[in-house]
Simulated scan of single mutants.
Amino acid sequence: MDELTALRELEADAPALTADARAAGRARLADAMAKESRRAGVLSRRLVLRTGFAAAAAAAVTGTVVVATGDRGGPRLTALSAAQVLDRAADRSRADGAGMPVPRSDQYFYTKEITTRTMIEGGRTKRYSDEIWLSVDGSRPSRYVYDGRIQDDPPLTEHEVRWPPTEYAKLAELPTDPDELLALFDASSSGGIATYMDFLMLMRDPRVMPPGLQAAAFEALAKLPGIVLDDDEVDALGRHGIGVSYPGMTIGLVFEQDTYAYLGLRLEGVKGARAVGKELVGGEKYVEVKGRVKAGVVDEIGQRPR
Rank of each mutant, 00 (worst) to 15 (best):
R104Q: 10
K294V: 15
A56R: 14
F199W: 01
T195L: 02
Q303L: 07
G243A: 14
A40D: 12
G138Y: 09
D258I: 00
Y286S: 10
V293W: 03
T116C: 07
A187L: 05
P103Q: 07
G123P: 03
A40M: 09
E219N: 03
G41P: 00
V244E: 00
R94D: 15
V42E: 09
I193P: 02
L221M: 11
G74K: 03
H159G: 03
G70Q: 14
V234T: 13
A95S: 14
S93T: 07
T64H: 09
P164S: 05
D299P: 00
L265C: 00
L280W: 15
L77Y: 07
T69R: 08
A58S: 13
K112A: 12
P210I: 02
D177I: 01
A295Y: 15
A68L: 08
E173I: 10
R92G: 14
V228Q: 15
P75N: 09
E288L: 08
A83G: 09
L10I: 14
G52K: 13
P15L: 07
D235F: 03
G212N: 12
A187N: 04
A98L: 10
K112V: 02
L224N: 00
E268M: 07
W133S: 06
T195W: 03
I120C: 02
M1Q: 12
D198K: 04
T125A: 11
E160D: 13
V287Q: 09
Y246L: 09
A6K: 12
A222D: 01
T5H: 11
S81K: 07
S139Q: 09
A56G: 12
Q151P: 01
K285A: 12
A21Q: 09
R92M: 15
L43Q: 06
A30R: 06
T195P: 02
T195A: 14
V297M: 03
D153M: 08
V48A: 08
Y286E: 12
D299R: 06
A24C: 08
V66P: 01
A12T: 14
L80H: 01
D13N: 11
G63T: 15
A12K: 10
A27I: 04
M100Y: 11
P225Q: 02
A32G: 07
A273S: 13
P154G: 06
G302L: 02
W163K: 00
